[in-house]
Amino acid sequence: METAIEIKNLVTHYGDVKVLKDVSFSIPKGKTTVILGGSGSGKSTLLKHLIGLLKPTTGQILMNGGDIAVMNEQEFNEVRKRIGVLFQGAALLNSLTVADNVALPMREHTQLEESTMQVMIRMKLDLVGLSGFENYYPSQLSGGMKKRAGIARAMALDPAFLFFDEPSAGLDPITAAGLDELILKLRQAFKMTFIVVTHEMPSVFKIADYVVMLDRGDAVFAGTLDELRASDNERIRMFLERRSEKEVYSPEDYFRIIAGD
């Protein structure tokens, strides 16, 4: 299995709080890797590191032949052309039409003719099922369509890596399933590496080739779906079986808590 991204001993802090505690794992090339975890597990923080929005306290992120944790802006800008990101709320620029949103990275980074870009925009929008919506503004689109347009924009420069931050967040189950299917279709058609951050188990079972699970800042699991199902790690079982955390205090602790000492 060829490695696309390797994360070594990643430690990061928000102020004094340690969010990621020595996380190490690798992401295989040309597959869909799901980064799974509950709220506060550090998965969103990890994603922000992978797309270069945050720098870790210590540790390495090896990607595209370099350590992006220590790259300067200029070097990292080269890497940025090879990654596309779908943000949770799609993050389309509201002042631009769908077509102009998709064209944004092309206009910034290439010398392509306007007419070539128009063909490319139509190709990308067709790919995500949004043909004919070129001149719509994001505010005129539904949640699912916004995310599709966000994917088209993320794919504008034919990236090698495509990141998805909670693709099903805020969508009804039918739209979310449609989006999962789109991810599957794209994954089959393009030789890209997909990294999906989510906590939606149905979606994980549908799209994942490889799963990394984060729990309270630790990577507790990295492996295939079957290995995940077979795991007997208590936290993973809780996640899979949707069990809540049982908090048990001793009577003394309970008294201490309510007495407010």
Binding site: T110, L112, S115, T116, M117, V119, M120, M123, K124, D158
Partner: peptide, 11 residues
């Protein structure tokens, strides 16, 4: 060949 190449031939 990437999408810009395809688009060029389409044009």
């Amino acid at each position: 060949i990437d999408s810009s190449g395809i688009a060029t031939f389409v044009e």
